[in-house]
Design a binder for these strands. Structure first.
Length: 486
RNA sequence: GCUCGUAUAGUGUAGUGGCCCAUCAUAAAGGACUCUCAUUCCUUUGACCCGGGUUCAAAUCCCGGUACGAGCACCA
């Protein structure tokens, strides 16, 4: 090396993807549609989607909807999740795969397993198999002839067996040192008469259903997935699936993992728990602003770009982390501030009557850094203005962009238009230019509805606003603002 | 219990044997700008879990410990 090594640049963005060839990368994100997307799901979408984009590859959105009783799918989620994924990424997933539409493929592979002798139908109970697993001993079913296995398989399919009577296992070895890998279950039966699949085209059509490790493994192969990036809780899944791939003589995709994430303000986020809480009436719905769902965040004014930057900044480390929302809010502020019109909202308004000679109109900018966004005009010809109750106790104040006043009860004495001293600057609204409005502020599990008056405006719902001296908010309707963050 | 994984400032993150008395962001504190408690800018505070080893040289490699997390479901 002739050249001196340069000071290394700090790596920004996503880490390198091993063995990635431009145009040939296929990634997937596979949620259970048992609810809409949560904040945590966003990581899977953002990371996998960003790699797909970076390498000119494909992102598959796959619905892992193979459980009808423990985590039953929610019909609306099949519609909502792709929309939310597209909102988050700025592009739609390239392929959508629904596991419950692909049952024939899983059956076919199960039969291959049975006939080639690396899978067997096990009629042991879950409890007795657990003991065998601990003891590293094989169960009697393990050495059945493949013909007999096919017979038993058909009894699963035709309903001779009932749920719990039999499962299909992959032969991996009962002496494996990791107990999690020993002859793991691949398919089981479910009572889809009492718990039909919510998709009506599926309903009670199947009794035998693949479990995640089998379904996911087979489907990843069928779809040509090259890279799997998922939570490290699925590390043993990789090991189980690798053993299956060896049987099928397939190559397992490259894998990367991320650790567990908690948010200081929310703790963990479980879709199942949210679903129970919503059904119990604790929340108004999936987009309740207190909930860590994508829809709630979106409705509260968090941009998809902020979410993307947030997750990319966290990267793909295997550390278990706990992050404050302030980090997300900081990204969001950077996204919205330049475009957010300034607006005045007065909480708990107190009316003041101005005494003394004073201008009849006041103008101020819509955005102090961008004159192009125009001006706001206040009409004070009736001498009445509104200020926050909290500010009304101050003896001397300056009404922002207007003038200095001395306050005394309900009256405000005009002192001077120019600043005369360092008295605090407060925001205000002229009585002629405002209407009653509500600021919705989700905080500490409560939804506070702060009444006040809002400056007249012509913004459309969805506009992000910077509420002077309060924070950022999103306009819900003419006179309702949802507080976003400071 | 068995198995697996992770450990860098308050919180995240960069760093894969010498560029590191360690990067960047965020948070906090102070300041500049500003007629918002906004934005922007500047400054400061602040970290390689512990103990051994390998090496001329370790945040980086090895071993042990500790802590935290995960899997061992006929959930995903």
């Amino acid at each position: 090396m002739l050249e001196e090594r340069q000071k290394k640049e700090r790596r920004v963005g996503l880490p390198e993807l091993p063995n990635a060839e431009k145009g040939k990368v296929v990634l997937r994100f596979a949620p259970n549609p048992n609810g809409p997307l949560s904040f945590g799901h966003a990581r899977g979408i953002v990371i996998n989607g960003s790699y797909a984009e970076k390498f000119d590859g494909e992102l598959i959105l796959r619905f892992d909807d193979t459980d009808t009783s423990v985590k039953p799918p929610l019909l609306e989620a099949y519609q909502q999740i792709p929309e939310e994924a597209e909102w988050l990424l700025g592009f739609a997933p390239h392929r959508i795969v629904i596991a419950s539409d692909r049952m024939e493929h899983y059956y076919e592979h199960a039969e291959m397993m049975l006939s080639r002798g690396f899978g067997y139908v096990c009629t042991c109970s879950a409890e007795s198999f657990r003991e065998l697993r601990v003891a590293k001993s094989e169960c009697p079913c393990r050495n059945q002839e493949s013909g007999f296995n096919m017979e038993l398989w058909n009894k699963m399919l035709d309903g001779t067996f009932k749920p719990g009577d039999a499962v299909v296992r992959v032969k991996t070895g009962m002496d494996l040192k990791n107990p999690a890998l020993r002859d793991w279950p691949a398919l089981r039966m479910q009572d889809t008469e009492t718990n039909p699949h919510p998709r009506k085209e599926i309903g009670s059509k199947y009794r035998v259903w693949p479990l995640l490790d089998f379904q996911s493994a087979v489907e990843d192969h069928l779809q040509g997935v090259t890279h799997i990036i998922r939570g490290k809780d699925l590390m043993d899944s990789t090991r189980k699936q690798t053993l299956l791939y060896q049987h099928f003589e397939w190559d397992y995709p490259e894998t990367m993992y991320w650790g567990r994430v908690k948010v200081h303000e929310w703790g963990g986020f479980s879709t199942s728990q949210m679903r129970r809480d919503i059904e119990a009436g604790l929340f108004e719905g999936w987009d309740d602003p207190r909930l860590p769902t994508i829809s709630a965040l979106k409705n509260r004014g968090i941009t998809s770009e902020a979410l993307r930057q947030f997750w990319i900044e966290l990267g793909v480390t295997q550390k278990d982390i706990s992050v404050p929302l302030a980090t997300l809010y900081s990204h969001n502020t950077k996204q919205i501030d330049d475009d957010a019109p300034r607006i005045s909202f007065v909480r708990n308004p107190v009316k003041l009557q101005i005494t003394g000679e004073h201008p009849m109109t006041v103008t101020t900018s819509v955005h102090p850094n961008h004159d192009s966004m125009g001006i706001r005009t206040f009409d004070i010809s009736n001498h009445n203005v509104l200020i926050e109750k909290e500010d009304s106790v101050k003896p001397q104040v300056r009404l922002k962009e207007f003038a200095d006043f001395d306050l005394s009860g309900q009256s405000a004495k005009f002192i001077s238009q120019a600043r005369s001293d360092k008295r605090p600057i407060i925001h205000w609204i002229s009585e002629n230019d405002c209407k009653k409005a509500t600021l919705i502020h989700p905080s500490d599990g409560e939804i506070l509805e702060i009444e006040g008056v809002l400056e007249n405006h012509e913004y459309t719902p969805g506009t992000m606003l910077q509420i002077e001296r309060i924070g950022y908010g999103i306009l819900l309707d003419d006179c309702t603002i949802m507080f976003t963050h400071d």
